[in-house]
Simulated scan of single mutants.
Amino acid sequence: MHSDCSVVIGEGMPIGRPPSSTCPQLVVEDIDAAVAALTARDVPISAVQQLGPEGMPGSRFAFFEDPDGYPWSLQEM
């Protein structure tokens, strides 16, 4: 079994302002398909954002909130 995991610790993180570096990340293989699936279920979600060099694995994100208002992100690996 395989699992991707991201742990970010440090000051001056280069990947944007919150919630980009302050919320749990759900890792997906195809972020465009995941955003489309959530949008089809009426989940308000951001557009896909490139938060690192183009083509760099793990640098595409989208953001949404759960029903209690807590932020989450999708990260494409």
Rank of each mutant, 00 (worst) to 15 (best):
77 M>E: 04
23 C>F: 01
3 S>P: 00
59 S>F: 12
36 A>Y: 12
20 S>T: 08
61 F>L: 15
71 P>S: 11
7 V>S: 04
73 S>L: 01
54 E>T: 15
44 P>L: 08
67 P>G: 06
30 D>P: 04
77 M>S: 05
53 P>M: 13
31 I>A: 04
15 I>Q: 08
29 E>N: 14
31 I>R: 01
43 V>G: 12
24 P>Q: 09
2 H>Q: 07
31 I>D: 05
62 A>L: 03
10 G>L: 07
20 S>P: 00
42 D>I: 03
36 A>C: 14
34 A>Y: 11
10 G>M: 05
64 F>V: 05
25 Q>G: 05
38 L>F: 14
71 P>W: 03
51 L>V: 13
68 D>E: 14
51 L>F: 06
73 S>A: 10
74 L>Y: 02
34 A>M: 12
20 S>Y: 06
48 V>N: 09
4 D>G: 06
14 P>Y: 11
4 D>C: 03
4 D>W: 11
50 Q>T: 08
17 R>H: 11
61 F>R: 02
8 V>N: 04
32 D>K: 12
45 I>S: 04
22 T>Q: 03
34 A>G: 11
24 P>I: 10
11 E>R: 00
25 Q>L: 05
52 G>E: 06
19 P>L: 05
4 D>R: 03
30 D>G: 02
4 D>A: 12
62 A>Q: 03
53 P>V: 14
20 S>R: 07
58 G>T: 06
65 E>V: 01
75 Q>G: 11
16 G>P: 04
48 V>Q: 11
32 D>Q: 13
51 L>I: 14
59 S>V: 11
67 P>L: 02
58 G>Q: 09
11 E>D: 12
57 P>D: 13
35 V>Y: 07
12 G>T: 00
42 D>N: 15
71 P>L: 08
67 P>E: 07
19 P>N: 05
70 Y>W: 08
65 E>A: 08
